[in-house]
Design a protein around this nucleic acid. Sequence first.
DNA 1: TATGCGTAGT
Length: 643
Amino acid sequence: MITQLGKSGKIEEAVKLFSLMTIKNTVTYNSMISTINKNGKINDARRLFDNLTHRSLVSWNTMIAGYSHCDRVDEAYRLFVEMPKRDKFSWTLMMTCFARNGELEKARELFDLFLDRRDVAFWNVMVQGYGQKGRFAEAKKLFDELPLRNVISWNSMLSCYTRNGEMHLGREFFAGMAMRDVVSWNLMKIPYPNVVSGVTMLCGLARSGKILEARRLFDQMENNNVVSWNAMISAYLKDYQIEEAARLFREMPNRDSVSWITMIDGYVHVGQLGKAREILNQMPYKNIAAQTAILSGYIKNKIMDEACQFFNEIAGRDIACWNTMIAGYAQMGRMDKALDLFKEMEDKDLVTWNTMIIGYAKTGEMDKAVKIIEEMKIKNVVSWNSLISGFLHNGLSMDALNSFKVMACEGIIPDHSTLACGLSACANLAALQVGKQVHVKVLKSGHLNDLFVGNALITMYAKCGRIFSSRLIFDDLEEVDVISWNSLIAGYACNGYGKEAVQLFEQMVLKGVRPDHITFVGVLSGCSHIGLIDQGLKLFKNMSEIYSIEPSVEHYACVVDMLGRVGMLYEAFEVARGLKVREDARIWGALLAACKTHGNLKLGKIAAKQLSEFEPDETSSFVLLSNMQAEACSWDEVENTRL
DNA sequence: TATGCGTAGT
């Protein structure tokens, strides 16, 4: 009964029933632990588990499954080690837990250890694990080695392809399944065509934008169930075909909670909160996930009063619901409100703590973010990434780098995003040696072809003056994007290779990559450094005329600098004076510097005067001006300026 | 083994 209630989402009733029961055996406890786990209250489940004097193998396995489900690998593993006896299920559970968290090598270790006793489930877990990490070639190798495949093996392999966007291979594999294995399906008494593989394929098609093909498949499938209906509805929603989705939703024979939530979220996603609430009101059992979807709708639309009121009205809020509300306040910079909720919350998970770090990082209160991470008993890579990127965004690159080191000391494996942040910190500090050490970590980690990491490497080497290393990184990347080009162009520019910057810009355009405003800052500054006036002015003109990019202050500053450097001071002055954008200190600063180089006192005075209006406290412009005056031997004016 | 949503970092 408890299990039944748990399955239909009536957790509170299950808890009530459990507390009313006078005689409870281990099986009762196990059902309750499993039910609570599925509801995400792992700590409550653990308390029950700890109170249980006669634990069975199932109790241990259930608890490990619970930890696995919320990605608490260490705790799962501790139980796995502690448990008095293990069965095959314990091993597969632990492998799944490792695989889910990307710790494939550890999963593989268990797989290899179990050698002669492993059955098809072991292989399937590994195939799935490799598939989730995009390592479908390794998955296929295992799949081919599998002595006896069941339908799960086939479907797991199929989803390796579809989840990784390998639709050519996926189609081929799907077709192959249909061709050769009808006999074995029959032997295994599995209905064919199998609806699970159909849905796997359908979702793959939808993800790659092939909605029509997905729909054809859906129409061909004779054994559509609620899952395939849900998948089709979701495909339409993601393709913004809301009406078609709504039509299917109305027509479908049965709906489950996923159907309702999918539809609600579909409306939330396009900002139709009213429609979303309408659907919620029609829902027979309003579960928390559905209400949380609406809550996040209010938050996304920054309707915080409504969000708060709605949140307070939700009965039986779970951790995710609290986290959504806290994150909402954090996004709005209302850390006071976020902290109130944080204190009020009984069961916090990693996401809760991480959200607080991110919130404080956003408001620039890094001391508070540090305090939070210090209080955390369990931290994961996201906790550290949040802190490190917080330091980075607040201009504290040294602190970012230190945290990067502390994290490594605590034995947390950096992911692609940690590495990218570490490299950015090195770039900002021009710390070449540390940068190289991080590069070694990148090589060891297998994140070399990650775009964020690759782009960060390009910038790091460029800012450390090693532009040829940047170039090598760029050339070795399997795939580049506009940011990679921008990083390399800006790198050449700031190292004084203006011509190469322009050439790269041309190559980029030839390859069909559309330049953005940052590309132009890079290439224009490259032109200005080496006095490529005509080239630079042409690019500046093309920027708005061909690429429809409105020039910003940065671009104007480049042009003023460019003209100023070669002594075209009046032209530079005209540009500065006729700005379409809000005038900016950087522009007049560039002009003043140019006037200093070319000894034009008259314009220099005007520039300094303009500059003083933007930055009255900044004295460097006056120092520059007075030096100019000194060079021009107008000592009286020097006295005036210095006073 | 398939579907949804929400919370976390580049």
